[in-house]
Design a protein around this nucleic acid. Structure first.
Lengths: 344, 344
DNA sequence: GCAGTTGATGACAGCGCTGTCTCACCAACT
DNA sequence: AGTTGGTGAGACAGCGCTGTCATCAACTGC
């Protein structure tokens, strides 16, 4: 910076003022400084600046992985908002328990970021308390944490609407496929199941536990097993609502491999509207992870700029059903199809 | 840090030494300092430290998006290596041309990272020259840049092997589906096409331009058109090699919707081994983006620690064919199937 | 027993900025 | 002419660390 000052024939103070866009610099001087800075390829060191200002101009995020559609999309949205605000994005990836423990013990984000966004962990009380001690705004993404700022989609309403869509088509036996074993990465499964049940109750239908099966996400064999169980029921379902698109796709795959027509004999709907849903032309409940990222970013920035802001604010994002071609009215006869396999 | 020093009854120098794990601290003092630091919830400010050491302990990456399987997986691998080295990860997302121009004009990573990893952009000469001026190691990921460290998979060999797999099954009319319009995000399409051609030439087959069609990635309609063109040929292909799994899946989808059996009538192979390939049981050429990320991270760290290291080093990663159930020998008669649609 | 050596610790400058205080200068007043 | 107020610019301390040097005690060996 001293070099720039010398070249422009001013003091470092003036260079600093110019580069930060402060108003008390005359146009001629400003031009001189800017030219000198460009010629010397000068960029201020954020680190040195943050030492004085106490602001790091960067936001940290804690994510369980980077290779998931949800996290990737949300971070893309977040990055957009941050760039607009001149903030950088630092990512802490915590794939397992060991890393998680280490993170919460050392809290490396402390003093190295202006805010922290925590993605989809089922945090313990201790962990949230630990984050409180960070002394910076912490925004919880895709999870509700009481009394702390959170951003998430309305999973209950989404599953409710998705199930209603199937009910409106005339289905009365609607199965629900849960996912299990996502390893601390909370996928709101509880909420979505609640929405499903609510829709059935609303329609005056009984809650049949036989119709709720579970499978590990992204595991074809698990899905096949779950589907087999459903088809083997005395009164098999005419529709399946899957907690995630990935599972819905696996279900469709299995059904078609078993020569069960989708949607002719069984309708299938998913939740998320991942890209794969479009390839499969899958009826699904769409959420927008990039909107979640944007909202979370905006909330974090607001809290950074106004530390006295309301830290109990929750942002709940909507979902909407996208009807595509994997759902249709149930087969006309409505007799229990003991023999589900028959070709057209 | 002064607080910790006071509490432990030592000087700040000793605290610094202890917390950095330097050896010249007696065990008793070390224990005292560590306890004091824990009690006060103290963590050194990387920013202040970097001001003195000149090292930021963070690595920057430049990516076109975060919501792609490849980038996400590679970053996960990278994050792993960086965490092991105590480095942080700062992400610059450059989704469009405007952001790209701004990035290369201001080079915000300057002095704020120890190294930069550039993902899959088709950089101009000017842009690489600009990055050279950064004064820090720059590693190019998933692209070859002459004279600069690069990490990428051997796309030519991959496509060669993938095509050979189809040849070995007995196919002689093998189509290639390229992707277009990925907007500055280089997907090595040229190299893969080269490998495909090489395999055909090797087998003594002619290069028929009719058999090479293009479609936008992830666009079902484009894929349908491309498939339509192939099926409409006087002598349609018995196998399709797609540049990416996404495209392969779209091709299969279209084929099956047109009542063409896969792999009965037409075999389809992809490239990447994305998760969707497993759901479809798609034969594909597997690459490991997380290995790319790990290698790139390791290379960057090596260059940071040894600035005199060989900056011309290229790391080329292997691929391997995963035969699954979308490829099979061509239909026996080998007559030109004028009427491709027929059910079993 | 004393110079030389080793090991543990403290004092202090300074990394590259920013915020505050100060000052020179000029226009617009009494 | 003298005073005031406002504006643009410079001087300087200090943010929180680290690296260097100085210090001092406890040894070592002749």
């Amino acid at each position: 910076m001293a070099d720039v000052a010398e070249r422009a024939g001013v003091s470092t103070s003036t260079v600093s003022r110019t580069l930060r866009g402060l108003s008390t610099v005359s146009p001629e001087v400003r031009a001189r400084v800017e030219r000198a800075a460009r010629e010397l390829n000068f960029a201020v060191s954020r680190h040195a600046a943050s030492l004085v200002t106490g602001r790091t101009c960067s936001v940290a995020v804690l994510v369980p992985t980077l290779s998931s559609w949800f996290v990737g999309s949300a971070l893309s949205g977040l990055a957009l908002v941050l760039r607009a605000a001149g903030m950088e994005l630092t990512v802490y990836v915590i794939p397992g328990m060991a890393e998680r423990t280490a993170f919460f013990e050392h809290l490396p984000a402390r003093r190295n970021a202006d805010a922290l966004l925590v993605f989809s962990f089922d945090l313990t009380e201790e962990e949230t308390a630990r984050l409180d001690s960070l002394g910076m705004p912490v925004v919880y993404v895709s999870q509700h944490v009481d009394g702390r700022p959170s951003v998430y989609v309305d999973d209950v309403a989404g599953a409710l609407r998705g199930t209603r869509h199937l009910l409106n088509l005339g289905h009365r036996r609607i199965a629900y496929v849960r996912t299990v074993g996502t390893g601390g990465f909370s996928f709101s499964s509880q909420e979505r199941l609640v929405g499903y049940r609510q829709a059935l109750t609303e329609a005056g239908l009984p809650l049949d536990d036989e119709l709720v099966v579970a499978t590990p996400a992204g595991d074809k064999r698990g899905a096949a097993e779950a589907v087999g169980r459903l088809l083997g029921l005395r009164e098999p379902p005419t529709a399946v609502f899957a907690e995630q698109d990935e599972v819905a796709v696996a279900v469709i795959w299995t059904l078609r491999a078993t020569r069960v027509e989708v949607p002719g004999q069984v309708s299938v709907a998913g939740f998320d509207d991942q890209p794969v849903a479009q390839w499969f032309d899958l009826t699904t409940v769409a959420q927008s992870p990039s909107a979640i990222g944007r909202e979370a970013g905006a909330l974090a920035l607001a809290l950074v700029n106004d530390p006295g802001g309301d830290r109990r604010r929750h942002v709940v994002l909507p979902t909407h059903v996208i009807p595509r071609t994997t759902t249709a009215p149930p087969p006309a006869p409505r007799s229990a199809p003991e023999e589900p396999a028959r070709l057209p």
